[in-house]
Each structure stands twice: as C-alpha cells, then as structure tokens.
Design a protein around this nucleic acid. Structure first.
Length: 1223
RNA sequence: GGGCGGAUAGCUCAGCGGUAGAGCGUCGCCCUUACAAGGCGAGGGUCACAGGUUCAAUCCCUGUUCCGCCCA
C-alpha cells in the first residue's frame, strides 16, 4: 500500500518522531531472537544511572550504538541492543538522602535500612522510566523486552554467584587494610573513585625532641594533625646527618608517647624536606607500607567522619582541619614549629562529593586482581578484543599492568549486600560496650567485631554455623561497589549464571561502545570478569568515544550552566528552561531540532581522539539537511503522477544521461558509506551521504530531472521517475541508521512496492557495481563544467536568474563539442540561457564576458546587460591567479633536483599544468583585450607628462592592472610576469586566431624598422600585441607611444629588466585611459560626484597623473593597487589606510567597492611584499635552493595567495560534481 | 613528575608528503511553482611557533608555547 499523499512543505520532526517510534514498537522490530539463522550482532547499552537523566553524552552513546545496531539489523543480522539501567550506589543513595532531608528533614538513619531502601526503590520506580523514555525520543532501537536493571533479581543472582565463586577461588578476600575513605559519604572508595587534584598548600617543619638528648629532629609534613597518630619517625639509612639515630626514640610532641626512629630507604628521600619523615601508618599510604615493613603499631586517630578520636585527648571530636589549626597553634606555643612553607600537593577527593578523602584503616572486601588482569591483558595482546581508536590500547595496558587489588565493599545501603554472614553466637565482639543488640546493623561497638569475625560466604544465608552450630547470623552490612555488578553486565544481562540461548547467541557481544572516561572503571573490569567467568572476552571491539563538551570546549556542568538536555534539542524548549549559556543563544527559546538532526550532528562530530564540541550552529545546519531531504522527496512525490516503481531493473529502461550519472554517483556514495561504517567512521559516512544528497542529488540531478519531468518525452519522464524513486529509496535506507524517523516517514510514501513494512528492516543498500558508469560521469563532466562556468559569469555580473542570456561555448575538443551540443537541454535551463552556440575556437563575440575552463571557453555577450568594467576586473583577477600559480609550479620545475628526483609522473603533471595554465592565461588575456574599452587610441600621447618608461606614471582612472603579481625588482618584490616570461618564452602568448587588426600591425612591423615607428605606430602595435595576449610587449609599445618616440630598442636591456609586472599595470591603466581622459581633465575632479560607482568615482576623482599614494580614491580603486601589490609597501599602505574609512562610508560609496578593499588585507599584502622582509629572508634561503639564487631579484610569491589561487583555479578549471561543493 | 590527545577559514571541524576542504557565519544577485531551513555566485587560511629530514612539509622528526585529558 502506498501513501503518496503530498508531504507538508517543511519537515516537522516532533509529530513524525512520536508516531514512528510507536509504530516500530507496535511491530516489535527491536526484538532480537534468542536463536536465529541470522548472524548475531549485539551491543549492551552502558546502563545509565537509574535516577539520573540523560545528558548529551548519553545521546552520543545512544546515537552511535543505534547507528551500529540499525545498520547491522538492516544488513541481515539478528541484532540485539540491550537496554538497562544501573543502580549507581553512592549517587542514587545520595540523591534520595538529599530528598529525604529536604522533604521530611530526616536522615537515612532515622528511617533505618529497610525503610530507607524502600524509599530508594520507590524513587527508582518513579524516575527509572525516564531513561527509557529519553531513549525512545532519540529513536533508540533497543530491545525493551530485555531491559535490565543491575539490582533486579537476575543481576543480583549473578552478583552473588560471582562473589561466592571468587571467594571460593581465593580471589575475593576480606582484610583490614588502608583504603580510601570519604568522610562525607562515609564509605570506602576504590582507587579509581578518588580524583587527584593539584592544590596549593603548606609544608610545615616540626621539631621532634630526641629522647635523652638535646637534639631535635625536624620533620617536614603537609598534615601536621596526623602527628598524633605517628608511631615512628624515619630517616634514610645513608643520611650522614642522622647517623646513629636509628634505633633511638623521639618524644612525640603534644602527646606523652615516645616513638622509635627508624631507618627506611624506601620511604625517605634524603633530598626532600629535612630528610626526616614522620610515620603515620594508619593515615597515609606510604606510611602504611612502612608500618608493615617495620611492624609498627597502626594508630587510628580519625573516625569515619574524619573527626579526631577520643584517643587524641584534647583534640577529640575536632574536625581534621580544625585539629590541624589547633595542633599548629600548640606547636607554635611550644616552640616546636620551625617554619611553614608554601607547597604544592596532590589532594585526593571523592568523585561523588568532592570531599577530601582520608586514608582509613578498616576491614574491607577485596578482589585479588592480578590473576584476573593477566588474561585480560593477554586477550588484548592477542587481538581477541580490539580498541578503536587504537591509541586506547596502551592506556589499557598501562593501567592493567599497574593495577592494585580492588576494594569492592562500600559502607552504603543501596546496592548488592555482600553475601557474607557472621555467626552471632561465636563471632568476636567489640570489646568495651555491650549495650547494643547483637544484630546491630553497623560496625558500631557492641556488635560483632567485623574486623575480626570470620565470614561465611554463601549464596544464601547458612542454616547453621559450621563452627558452633549456631543458627543466628548477621549478613555483612556492606554493599558492593556499583562497578562490580556492571563488570558482569555483558553476561548477567544475557541470563548468566543460567545457560540461556541468549548467552549462547550473543556472547561475546560484538561491540562495546562507551565513553573513554570509563575505560578502567568498566571496560577493564568487564574484560576481567568476562574472561574469568565466561572463558571468552565480553566483546570483540571496544569503540571509545570522546567526551561531549560545549561549544567552547568546556565540560558541561550544572555549575557552569552549560548543560544541554538532549530532549530540549529534540523537542525544543522555552527560554526559561534553558541553561544560561543556551538562553543567550536562544532568547526566544530553543526550536525543536528533532532527534534526527541531533543524531546526525553527533555522528558528524564523532572523531577519533578529539573532544566533541557540540555546535548549535552545526545542529541547525543538519536540521536544514533534514528539511532538504524532506523537500527533495516532496519534489519527487509531487511529480510522480500515477507512476509506481515496478520490479523491472532500471537497466531495462531507457535512461537519460542524468539518470545514468546519478545512479553511478549513488553507487559510489553507497560504497563509501559502507567502507566508513565498517571502520567506525560515522562522521565520514554521514558527510558522504550529506554531500551526495545535497550537492549531487539535489543540486544536479533534481535540476536536470526537471527537464524530463516537465517535458513531453514519456519515456524520459518514466525513466526519471523510476530513477528518482530508486535513488530516494537507496538514500533513505543509507541514511536510516543515522536519521531513523524522517527516513521511515518518507520511505513509506515512495510509490513502489516495499519488501518490508518498515525501512528499519529493509536491506541496507549494497553498491551495485554494474551501475557505476564511468562513461556517464565522463559525459556529464563538460556539461557541469559549462554550467558552472556560465553561472560564474552570471554571478559575477550580478545577472538576475530571470535574465536569459545567449552563450557561445567553444572547445577545441570535438568530443566535448558533441557532448555539449547533445546535452544543450541540460545546459540551457541550468545556466539560464536563451540560446547557446557550440563550436570550435574561433571568432569571439564582442563585448562579452568570458570563462576559460579546461578545454572550454565560454562567452556571454553582455553588452547592454551589465557594466563591462566588472567583467574586466574579473578577468584580471583570473589572469593574476593563473600567473601566480604558474610561477609557483615553474619555480619547482626550474629546480634541477626536483626534475631529477621527484617521481616522473609528478614532474609530468606539473609540466602539463604549466601548459594548461598558460593556455588559459592567454585566452583570458585575449578576451580581456577584446572587451577593452574602445581600443582606438588617441593620436596624441596621453595627457600625463612624458615619463620615462620606468616611472610610475599611472592613471587611477585605468581599470587597474592586468597582472596582480608583485611588483618591481628594485623593491625586492617578485615579478611573476617577468619571471614567467623569462622562463617560458612565449608559449602562452599567441592566441589561435588573430584578427585583422593584429595582422595589420604585424604587417607594419615587418615593413618598418622599429626605430622608424611613430608614437601612433607604437600605439597600434601595442594594441595588436594586446590583442594577442602579449601583454608585456604591448606595455612596452604603449610606453614608447607615450614617450612620443621609439627611443629605446625593443630588445633593450633596460626595458627587459623592467618588471613586466609594472608594465602590466601601466598597460592596463593606459589603454583604457584614453577613454576617460578625453572628457576628464584634472580640473574636473572636484566636481566628481561623491557617490558613483566605484570605477567611475576612481576615474574621476583622481588626477590622471597622480601617483597611487596620493589617491584619495575610494575603496575599490584605492585598494586595488595595494591588493595587487603593484605599489611598493609605502604606497600600498596609504590606500590601505584610506580604504578603511572608505568602507565605513559605504553610505555614499558603493558597497561592492568598499568590500573589495579591506584595509587589513591590503596592509597584509603590502607587508608580504615588503622588500627584504620576512618572507624573503625566511623562506627563500633555507628551503629553496633555486629560489635562493634568485632571491635578490625575485622573492617567492606570497605563498598563501599563490596557493589560494591555485586552489581556486583547480576547482574552476576542472570542476566535477564532487568538487563542486554545495554553498 | 610520567603519559596521551589537540592547535588548520570568523565559529565548529575534515584532511595528514606533490602548493588546503566542509558546515555554519560573511558579501552580492534572486521569494526561478521541492525547499528562503532555499538557489546561484563571491570573499575568507604565514595549516600555533622554531629547527630538521626531503627534490618537495599543513602532513614525517626534534624542540618550544598554549589548551584538554589520564596516571602517580
């Protein structure tokens, strides 16, 4: 059934998205089969915190995983993407505690463990669903029937099983060790949950009196308050300052204790501080190890809230920081504080609450990690699991090889309670207080002394004590680290420890995709647990994505106010709901971008090894892309008539060139997309599709298709419709993993029979190599080139689309001519032509705009349509570009080393390029002359006073220079034109067809000697040369004409050495100068109207002979010399300065003119050209042997601009559909 | 202290030996019946800095400076 109802004019994501997701759910498409003939593909979703809400990082996770899953599902896999949530121990408990405090003013202890846990479960029920809902909004194709929770019965069973097995294997043990403790959360933390921060602190020097001696030992410490728990001071055994002290004792200040002086080479660095270290084994990790080595007593002086214990006498009950102050004060009073120095130290803080953590001696459960880590390292070494990007492999190895035993017990309530039980009958008790009940839930005095009690680890509570037969037990009150259950996720979610078909089908999972921040927390631990319990890696590939940051690259946090809620992006949000930075951006509220746009944006920003800065502008761009897709489809549907795509292969139809071309391009895009996806190149795949749809399908194919669709040829109409539907079907399917909603919506409306009810289970397109059509692409190339050339002319001439023009297209290549002739129906509408004449190079239309491409010349007669000045400007620019590039390439070619050592094909390519550029340049110059203002030169010399040929006599009224290359050699600037001339001879010079004027002049030349030429002769000759494109020669002749005689011989060395560049300038200025000069003598200047077109203004405003630097000329003209660097720096600077105000004054000066004269640019160029400046000094000598030689004479052209020119040229000269990017 | 990334157009990012590309923004012309969330055209880059290797460096090597992250 096909619903070809016309689409709405603009794409409205919100409505479509809700509807489509419901449809998929209803059809149960997300469900994966436990057993299937299809190959399996599986991903488990990293379970988000159940009471949290998704942030943009989750959206990235979901996007990437959904792309993978949908792609694989469409590619014929039995694809499982398994959702779930994490109980997130500390985080969730804290949230609920906070809420409890806020609403009822109660602590969890007020409620008691059981009641409190009820509350947490309630909370979980209330907010847990939100995660799922958010994923639905994102379009995530998660198999909801298999949704799991880390604390559901199955997962809990898995956790118990793992715990018990590890215990039985000796890999889980309980011990009193020094662990990280958060005094605020009042729980143990693993090493990973402690964040280290560099802080400015102090180091204090404290004197400890040596017993029975006058001597004191000065210790240096950053934690003076812990001295109350010191049980030794340590010196280095080889430290001569303290020889003989080891074995003696010191009197510990502020206490009545005496502690030994020990020698320890490991703890003490004699170069650091005083060389004496206080040893506090119960409160410092290094000291703890020292304590173990020396069997020192371990004295705990801080309680679980980091307050001083009762053993600290007067300090008892004080907070640790308060105690520090007091201790310091007391030491000062006793004269034992020697000094305080500023010191940088690394402070460990709690990942959750940012409280400074405290090392604490307490009984905890640990996983013995080494036996688990070893296989996990090997698995990656052997490539059984691969990291993408690969760089993470080393990070993984480094951590795994330095891993410590994992402290898994947490003194929390919310989590998996540890399956260890203590007999209340025979377990040792806390000694001094027995008024608490036996089953007191915490490690308080009076109850079982958990530090000493013997645990019975079992899957279920034992019936009787194996020791005493007692039947009363108390379960270990601690819960497990949240990551413990997460570590089992890839198999616990599939039913383990039961042997389920799911486990068999989907383990190992195909890909683990998660943020790189949890590579240790989660990925490494899953590796260890998976290998240990399943005997195989938990996943074949680990794809680690970067962190999502805001546009400025800052981490998103509530404090900074830059958090972005993905749902706000999807659905839109009112301004008041937005975080501050977003509110600035969207004062009216955020529009609904839609899930597809968000997903596409995230996919394109996914790059390896780089943070993702979410750009709202790009987001808007991809929303526009959705709209583009929508409207392209809309266009197709509107033009279908009764058409229905049947199963007949496209090749059986009579396809047009455009049809064949787009089908070929489509196959390439398909292949590229495949390749990118296989390599996790989401960004590349997305941009391939973006480019194809927009720059090829929409910009070209649809436009070309209009001809057939609106035409009379029924067959062409039919084939075009077929190709439209076929292509859209493919494009939509290719895009589906990225943009599931819009693709489904449109796909359902295509007039064709669908193999499936939904695009999400339709096959992912495979490239059809039979449709790759080199011939079609080759045929389209000149058509596209011609259209683009014509559009350039139109654009530059500001011709409105409604103005149809006549074009003359010439090509020396017969085949090209044939093609253009054959496809004139494509050419005309797309280029806005009323008529086109295709022919071999020959007579050119007068007063025309020209475009010279590779193998192609295009002329559009513009007389009466536009100001030809603009066209001349453009041509000059083009010529300059060609010259600059050719100079660059020549510089290379003139280096013998290059020719000798570079690969021959590179050299050949460069030579061909020179050829091509020269030809192009010649044609452009030829044309420039052709549209020069009336070439009839005045008989008398120009009105400027006679000048020598080297003089800068320029008329600002001239339409500037022919060449834009740098200027005079005496200024140290490079002279590309001259250089070119010298190096190339005249290869680029002669145009193919000389007209009669040229013939005449040449005839004259032959007949007479140069000495005999009159000024008028020189003038004629100049014109002739000009028309032949021999600019330099023409220049020379014009100069002679100006001088009034032909004093200097043509071959004169003086002339020769004069920069052709400068000549070019003059030429350009002089030739047309004739025209304005007649009516515009200098005196007329003041009356020139302020607001005229840039050109006219310039012509009129400046006195004909005025040097550039004095030109008061406005923007366009004034800047031109600077821009082209025809003038020396000083001169350039002047107009540059002028240009700025001129720009401001655009009210009067024409805008267009102003824009061409950015002061910055002019100044920059001028600087670049500065003689003996950086450019020359820096680049030339070191790098370019050949250039160096010539550096004095010709500095390298400014690299950037040369490059730029080349680049532009390249795209211009050989445009292809691909090269032509959408604008 | 050790390690890993990054620095390319105004902004967000590709490219990574043969003289640089996209999107957005900018400028010009157009509301051409798919799309103004649009079309066509244009402008815009000492590819952080300094050395080195190479015929040739944005790209490879070394160092420096900034920015980010991880580990101790």
């Amino acid at each position: 059934m096909t619903d070809t109802t016309e689409l709405s004019k603009a794409y409205e994501p919100t409505e479509v998205e809700a509807r489509r997701y419901a449809f998929w759910l209803e059809k149960n498409y997300f469900h994966a089969e436990a057993t299937s003939d299809k190959p399996a593909f599986s991903i488990v979703l990293p379970p988000p915190n159940v009471t949290g809400s998704l942030h943009i990082g989750h959206a990235l996770t979901a996007t990437i995983q959904d792309i993978l899953t949908r792609w694989k599902r469409m590619s014929g896999f039995n694809a499982l993407w398994l959702p779930g949530t994490d109980h997130a121990g500390i985080a969730t408990q804290m949230v609920v505690e906070k809420e409890l405090k806020k609403t009822e003013g109660k602590s969890r202890h007020d409620l008691g463990r059981a009641k409190f846990l009820e509350r947490v479960w309630e909370w979980k029920g209330k907010y847990g669903a939100r995660i799922g809902e958010q994923h639905r909004y994102l379009g995530a194709s998660l198999d909801w029937s298999r949704e799991r929770f880390t604390m559901d019965e199955q997962s809990s069973a898995a956790v118990r099983e793992v715990f018990v097995r590890l215990y039985e294997e000796g890999l889980m043990y309980r011990a009193q060790k020094l662990i990280n403790w958060c005094p605020s959360c009042r729980t143990a933390l693993s090493d990973l949950e402690v964040e280290h921060e560099e802080k400015n602190g102090s180091i204090w020097h404290i004197r400890y009196p040596v017993k029975d001696s006058d001597r004191t030992l000065t210790v240096a410490t950053t934690r003076p308050e812990t001295m109350l728990g010191d049980t030794a001071v340590a010196i280095h055994p080889d430290d001569e300052r303290y020889t003989g002290l080891a074995g003696q004792t010191v009197k510990l200040p502020l206490t009545d204790r005496e502690i030994p002086i020990i020698a320890d080479a490991e703890l003490v660095d004699p170069k650091f501080g005083t060389g004496v270290v206080k040893v506090t084994p119960a409160h410092d990790f290094n000291d703890y190890q020292t304590g173990l080595r020396h069997k020192l007593p371990m004295m705990t002086i801080l309680d679980d809230a980091a307050r001083m214990t009762k053993d600290t006498g007067k300090y008892a009950g004080m907070d640790r920081f308060e105690a520090r102050k007091q201790v310091l004060a007391d030491l000062t009073e006793q004269g034992l504080l020697e000094k305080e120095e500023p010191h940088k130290l690394s402070v460990g803080t709690c990942q959750r609450c940012a409280t400074v953590v405290e090392p604490r001696l307490s009984p905890q459960w640990f996983v013995k990690i080494e036996p688990l880590a070893k296989p996990a390292i090997e698995a990656v070494e052997q490539g059984r699991t691969k990291f993408v990007p690969e760089a993470w492999t080393n990070t993984y190895f480094h951590w795994m090889r330095n891993i410590h035993d994992w402290c898994v017990s947490r003194q929390l309530w919310w989590g998996h309670q540890i399956p260890a039980y203590y007999c209340t009958s025979c377990s040792p008790r806390q000694g001094d207080d027995t008024d608490l009940p036996l089953d007191a839930p915490t490690v308080k005095v009076g109850g079982v002394d958990f530090a000493r009690a013997e645990p019975i680890v079992a899957r279920e509570q034992p019936k009787s004590c194996p020791k005493c037969g007692g039947a009363s037990f108390i379960q270990d009150s601690d819960v497990l680290d949240t990551w413990f259950s997460s570590a089992l996720w890839p198999f616990s979610t599939l039913g383990w420890p039961r042997e389920t078909p799911e486990l068999k089908t989907f383990y190992p999972t195909s890909v683990m995709e998660t943020g790189s921040d949890i590579i240790f927390f989660w990925v490494a631990r899953m590796m260890m647990m998976g290998l240990h319990f399943m005997g195989d890696v938990p996943f074949r590939t680990v794809y680690l994505h970067a962190m999502v940051r805001d546009e400025k690259g800052e981490k998103m946090s509530k404090v900074k106010g830059n958090v972005i809620d993905p749902l706000d992006i999807v659905l839109g949000a009112t301004a008041d709901k937005l975080a501050p930075t977003l509110k600035n951006k969207f004062p009216q509220g955020m529009p609904a971008f839609g899930a597809d746009a968000l997903r596409f944006t995230l996919a394109t920003l996914t790059q390896q090894g780089r943070d993702i800065k979410l750009s709202m502008d790009r987001l808007a761009g991809y929303k526009a892309f959705c709209n583009k897709l929508w409207n392209a489809s809309r266009f197709a549907l509107m033009n279908m008539g009764d058409f229905q795509l049947d199963s007949r292969p496209l090749s059986a139809r009579k396809l047009t060139l455009a049809d064949r071309w787009i089908l070929s391009r489509l196959q390439r895009a398909t292949a590229e997309t495949h390749k990118a996806l296989e390599e996790f190149g989401f960004a590349e795949a997305a941009s391939t599709l973006y480019q194809f749809l927009w720059a090829e399908f929409c910009d070209w194919y649809i436009e070309l298709a209009k001809g057939s669709l609106y035409g009379e040829d029924a067959e062409a109409k039919d084939s075009t419709r077929a190709v439209l539907v076929y292509s859209l079907d493919r494009i939509l399917r290719l895009l589906h993993p990225f943009m599931p909603f819009i693709t489904e919506e449109i796909w359902q409306k295509l007039p064709m029979s669908r193999p499936t009810d939904s695009i999400m289970i339709a096959p992912f397109p495979e490239p059809d190599t039979a449709m790759v059509d080199e011939a079609a692409e080759g045929e389209m190339a000149p058509v596209i080139a011609a259209i683009e050339g014509l559009r350039t002319i139109r654009g530059e001439s500001n011709l409105p689309p409604a103005t149809k023009v006549k074009a003359v297209v010439q090509s020396p290549d017969k085949r090209t001519r044939e093609l253009l002739e054959r496809w004139r129906a494509y050419l005309m509408p797309l280029a806005g032509l009323s008529e086109v004449q295709v022919g071999a190079p020959g007579a050119k239309p007068p007063q025309a705009a020209a475009f010279v491409g590779q193998n192609l010349e295009i002329y559009v007669p513009l007389a009466g349509l536009v100001d030809l000045d603009a066209e001349r400007e453009r041509l000059k620019k083009e010529i300059a570009r060609a010259e600059q590039e050719v100079a660059g390439v020549l510089r290379k070619l003139e280096n013998p080393n290059f020719v000798a050592k570079a690969p021959p094909d590179v050299v050949v390519k460069d030579r061909a390029r020179v050829e091509e550029l020269n030809e192009r340049k010649a044609k452009l110059q030829d044309h420039l002359q052709r549209i020069a203002p009336e070439p009839a030169m005045p008989e008398n010399t120009p009105s400027e006073s006679t000048t020598s040929s080297s003089q800068e006599a320029v008329s600002p009224s001239a339409p500037a220079q022919v060449k834009a290359a740098p200027t005079q050699e005496e200024k140290g600037g490079v002279d590309l034109g001259q250089e070119l001339k010298g190096e190339m001879g005249d290869t680029g010079g002669a145009p193919e067809a000389a007209d009669s004027q040229v013939e005449d002049a040449l005839a004259k030349l032959r007949e007479r000697t140069k000495e005999g030429l009159s000024a008028a002769d020189h003038q004629d000759l100049g014109v002739a040369y000009m028309s032949m494109g021999l600019v330099d020669d023409a220049m020379r002749e014009f100069n002679r004409a100006k001088e009034g005689n032909g004093a200097a011989p043509a071959t004169g060395t003086d002339e020769e050495s004069a920069p052709a560049k400068a000549q070019g300038d003059k030429l350009a200025k002089q030739v047309p100068a004739a025209k304005p000069e007649r009516p515009v003598p200098a005196k007329k200047m003041p009356s020139a109207p302020a607001k005229t077109q840039g050109d006219k203004l310039a012509k009129q405003a400046a006195p004909p002979a005025a040097p550039v630097k004095t030109a008061t000329a406005p923007a366009k003209r004034a800047a031109a010399p600077a821009k082209k660097a025809a003038a020396p720096v000083k001169k350039a600077a002047a107009p540059a300065k002028k240009a700025a105000p001129a720009k401001k004054a655009t009210a009067s000066a024409k805008k267009a003119a102003a824009k061409k004269a950015p002061a910055k640019k002019a100044a920059k160029k001028a600087a670049g050209k500065a003689p003996a400046k950086k450019a020359v000094a820096k680049k030339a000598p070191a790098k370019k042997a050949a250039a160096k030689k010539a550096a004095g004479r010709k500095a390298p052209a400014k690299k950037a601009s040369a490059k730029k020119a080349a680049a532009k040229k390249a795209t211009r000269a050989k445009p292809t559909a691909r090269a032509k990017a959408r604008r």
